[in-house]
Write a protein that binds this DNA or RNA. Structure first.
Lengths: 149, 149
DNA sequence: CTGCAAATGAAATTAATTTTCAATAAGTGA
DNA sequence: TCACTTATTGAAAATTAATTTCATTTGCAG
């Protein structure tokens, strides 16, 4: 049981969640993967070390871990299904309102220097990147003010 | 028919794809949305102006448009289902290998100044952001060299 | 050790996505 | 304008993904 695992376990306990062998098995597989996993992939892997596990437990545990901020989502393999028109032809970033879901395009990207720095540091050859900012637009902010929040 | 729509239509034609009224209707709805749309949401909206459309046509058209780079994906509403352990507790970015799917955490974020600049420019109050770099790790690059590519 | 409530998983259900295949129609060339 | 070819469509079916139901199990506090 690694230090990181122990930390996660104590965080879950602190939030009032029980530590079951299924949750340990799931956590183990996630922690030992150096890449990213879909629910189905995770289920296959967990089943090898804990064959009696149910798929629904995997989904539940992922939701729990995500809700507690103990796992991250990654987005780069094209499986996400939330779309908008590509308005600028050139490379751009997105600014998305958490209130009304409006998307603003941000055309001036200045990540080249950062990508080069990361490249030098990690040995990766960086092909592309994605950047999203999330916040409340001026309209949603005004609405919140008008409501007296 | 707006200029942008015309441009998209000619790109599709140039790639050998036919321009059907269904595709026009879908493109219209996407273009007029200032936010992002799931397949189901898009289908509901398209159906209002083109009631005979099939759901599968929506899926196919989205795949076509995404493949041609004419639409973008956005990721910030929590619906994406590709996970990895949250290794650094503090805020971090991800560097993902397009060859082996390995994920490297990038802990030093320097987007605060950029976020403030965007905030001043757009009136948004920015709450958070996400950044992913995609490229090939040194191992995959070596494998490609070893194969003679 | 006991009791309670959270957690589990099989089965069923719902939701999302894709395939099949007959019919339709976009677009080209004459 | 017409005929032809092949891409595209959509209903129905199928597959895959995700969630719910509910009886049973079990983690953990006292």
């Amino acid at each position: 049981m690694e230090v990181k695992d122990k930390h996660i376990v104590s965080m879950m306990r602190h939030q009032g969640h029980k530590i079951t062998p299924q949750r340990r098995a799931i956590l183990n597989v996630i922690a030992r993967s150096d890449g990213h996993l879909t629910p189905a992939a995770l289920y296959q892997r967990v089943k090898q070390r804990y064959p009696r596990i149910g798929l629904v437990t995997v989904y539940r545990t992922l939701d729990l871990l995500a809700g507690l901020g103990l796992i991250c989502r990654v987005h780069t393999d094209g499986g996400c299904r939330n779309y908008l028109l590509r308005r600028p032809e050139e490379h751009h970033h997105h600014l998305i309102c958490s209130g009304c879901a409006k998307v603003v395009d941000l055309a001036d990207c200045n990540m080249a220097a950062e990508a080069a720095r990361i490249s030098g540091k990690t040995g990766f050859e960086i092909e592309r990147h994605l950047v999203e900012f999330i916040g409340r637009c001026s309209h949603c902010r005004q609405m919140a003010l008008a409501k007296g929040f």
